[in-house]
Design a protein around this nucleic acid. Structure first.
Lengths: 343, 343
DNA sequence: TTGTAGGCGTTATCAT
DNA sequence: ATGATAACGCCTACAA
C-alpha cells in the first residue's frame, strides 16, 4: 500500500505541485475551478499530506501544545476541555501531549516545539523546579498552569496560573480548627515532593501554628511511595494504617479529593462513620466529591476560569501584548457533609 | 533563539554530518573517541534533533500509537498504563494521541501513520462503524480495544479485544432479577448510540425477556444528550427526573460506574437510601466503585489482561505471526453493597 | 572510520 | 493564476 504524494496528485491533475499546495492550504491566488478539480482528485485518491514534511517546511503551524503530566488526574480532564475550546476559538490547532513520569517535561517541550513548530505551550501538572537556563531553552511562550512552583527560577522567566496552595491549605486547616477540630491528621505528599504537596503541607502547618496548636508529626502521614501518588488506593492504605495505629485524631485532611475518598472508605471499612466518628476533608473540588456520599468538604479550584486565564496569557505573550503574567486564583471552601462541627 | 542543526554540530566538531548522525543513533562503525566528543558538543550546545526531519526520512520508527477517544474516561487510564509498559518492554516507543469528539479516528490514524511512520495502532474507545473501504486505508496493523463493534465490516478487516457487552449486560440484569428485582430501570445511551450503549441495552432486554418480565419502556432512560455522556452529572440528572416522575422501580442499572454514582447521589439527595430504598448497579469495575459508599455492584472488565492481549495481538500482526484476532474476555460480577436482595 | 551528496514530501520564492 | 526550484533537517548509500 504505497502512499501517494503531492507530486502524484499534481501529475494526475496535470498541474504543478505548488498549485496543489495552494489548493490544500486555501491560498488566495488560485483559480476556483482548478482548485475544485484538485480537491476532487485528492478525495478520490485518498491523498493525505505528510505532516512531517509540512512541519519541516512550515514556519508557523498555528499550533499550541498542552503538555500534561499525569493524564490520569481527573482534575486535568476538565481543564483540557476548556483549553481545547479556547484554542479552537482562536483558530489554532491543539496538540495534547502526554508526558510520563520519567520524562522531563521541558525536554519534551523543546523537542516538540522543533517537531511541530509550536507557537506556544501550556504545562499542566507535575513538579517544576527547573533552572532558568533550562527554561530559557524553550523558544516559544509558555504558561505553567496549576503547577505549584517551588523553584528558585526568576519570575520573569515564565508565566503562571494557579491558586495559592499555601493560602488555600491554610484556609481549609483554619476552617477545620474553627469547626472545633484540634487533632487534625493530614495525608500529604512524600518527603521529596517539591511541589503542591509541599505547599499544602506548609499551609497546614502555618494554620496550626497561628491557632496555637502544636504540630504532631505522628499524625502527619505521607502517601505511600510504592503506590500511585494522589490515588484513592493510596488514601485508603494510609488511612487504614493510621486507624490501626490507634493515634488520636478527629479529622483527616487529605491533600486531594481522590485521596480523601480513599480515606472515607477506609473509615467505613473499619466500621466507623464519616463524619460522625471521623471527619474528612479534601482538596481540588472534583465533581466526584459532590457526588460522593457523604459529599466532600474541600477547596474548589475555579477550573474554568483558570484554564481560560491560561490561554489568555499565552496568547497575550504570543501577540506580545503586555500582560499580567502571574495570575493567582482564589479557591472556594466547599462545605460538604464530610466534616462534622464539634462546637 | 535560532535553533542549531546537525550541520552546526558537525562544523563545531570538525566532522561530517553523517558522523554526527551515527553518534546520535548508536551506529556501530564509529570511533568511540569521536563519538564522545560529538556527544559532548551536543550536550554543551543543547542540540535537539528535529523529529519531523527524522520521520520524513525514516522508514521504520519502531513506534506504536494509541488513539483514544474520550481521554476523560477513567476506565482508559488504567489501560493506557499497561499499554505504555508493554510497548516499552518491546523496545518500541509509544505515542498517545487524543482524538476529539468531532474527529474521525480513522482519519487521524491515517494521518498519524504518515507523519510518524507507525508500526501499529491501537484504537481505544469511541464508536466504530467504519466501512471496510475506510479500514483498508490504514496501512499498518491495528487493534480495536474495548470498542463495541456494531458495524457491518468484515471480521477479517480488523482485530479486536473486548468483553461481550451483550452477554455481560445480560449477566448483570439476570443477577438483579435473581436477586428479586422485577422493576429494573436502566440508564442507557441515547438512541443514536451505535456502540457499547446499544449492546448493553440489548443484553438488558434479552435478560428481561428470558425471565418472562415485560419490558417497560417508561423506565428505560436514555442519558441526556445535552450533558456529557457517561458522566456522573448525567446519571444524576436522569435519576432525579426518574424519581420525580413517580415511576415504580426497585433498582437502577446504569450503563457505567460513573453514571451509577450520579444515580446514587440523586437517590440520597431525594432523601432515600441505597440500597434500602433503591438498589443501584453499574458497569466497568472502576476503582471508584469499590471506594464509593456504598460500594458498587458492577461488572468488572479485566482491564490488565485486555490491555496485554491488545498489545500481544498487535505485535503478532506486526510480526506476521498467525494469531487469534478477536479476543473476547469474560467480565466478573462484583457484588458490592449497592444492590439489595429482595428475596 | 569518515565525508559527500541525494532525497524524504512539503511549502515558499521567484519567475513566467 | 501557475510552475519550476530551492530550501527545511535529517538519514543513508556510496565513495574515499
Amino acid at each position: 500500500m504505497e502512499s501517494i504524494t503531492i507530486k502524484d496528485v499534481a501529475r494526475l491533475c496535470g498541474v504543478g505541485v505548488s498549485t496543489v499546495s495552494r489548493a490544500m492550504n486555501n491560498h488566495p491566488d488560485i483559480n476556483q475551478e482548478t482548485k475544485e478539480k484538485i480537491m476532487q482528485v485528492i478525495r478520490d485518491y485518498n491523498y493525505v499530506p505528510n505532516n512531517s514534511a509540512r512541519n519541516l517546511k512550515r514556519t508557523d503551524a498555528r499550533t499550541i501544545a498542552v503538555l500534561i503530566k499525569g493524564i490520569t488526574n481527573p482534575f486535568f480532564s476538565r481543564m483540557i476541555k476548556v483549553f481545547e475550546e479556547e484554542i479552537q476559538k482562536k483558530k489554532y490547532s491543539f496538540v495534547l501531549q502526554h508526558v510520563d513520569n520519567k520524562q522531563d517535561e521541558v525536554d519534551v517541550a523543546i523537542e516538540l516545539e522543533k517537531e511541530k513548530r509550536l507557537n506556544g505551550i501550556v504545562f499542566l501538572g507535575g513538579f517544576f523546579s527547573h533552572s532558568e537556563e533550562k527554561l530559557k531553552q524553550i523558544p516559544v511562550p509558555f504558561v505553567l498552569s496549576t503547577i505549584g512552583l517551588v523553584g528558585t527560577a526568576d519570575k520573569d522567566e515564565y508565566a503562571s496560573v494557579s491558586v495559592d496552595d499555601v493560602k488555600e491549605s491554610y484556609k481549609m486547616t483554619d476552617y477545620l480548627i474553627k469547626s472545633g477540630h484540634k487533632r487534625i491528621a493530614i495525608i500529604c505528599a512524600d518527603n521529596d515532593d517539591e511541589s503542591i504537596g509541599k505547599l499544602r503541607l506548609e499551609g497546614y502547618k502555618m494554620a496550626l501554628h497561628d491557632n496555637g496548636i502544636e504540630l504532631d508529626e505522628s499524625i502527619v502521614c505521607p502517601m505511600k511511595e510504592e503506590l500511585d501518588g494522589y490515588s484513592m488506593e493510596n488514601g485508603y492504605a494510609v488511612t487504614k494504617e493510621l486507624l490501626e495505629s490507634g493515634k488520636e485524631f478527629t479529622v483527616i485532611y487529605a491533600i486531594s479529593d481522590s485521596v480523601a475518598i480513599g480515606a472515607c472508605r477506609a473509615i467505613v471499612d473499619a466500621g466507623k462513620k464519616v463524619p460522625q466518628d471521623y471527619s474528612v476533608a479534601g482538596f481540588d473540588g472534583l465533581d466526584l466529591g459532590t457526588y460522593y456520599n457523604p459529599s466532600l468538604t474541600t477547596i474548589r479550584q475555579p477550573v474554568k476560569e483558570m484554564a481560560e486565564a491560561t490561554i489568555k496569557i499565552l496568547f497575550d505573550l504570543i501577540k506580545k501584548k503586555p500582560a499580567e503574567n502571574h495570575r493567582i486564583f482564589e479557591g472556594e471552601l466547599i462545605q460538604g457533609e464530610s466534616v462534622r462541627k464539634l462546637n
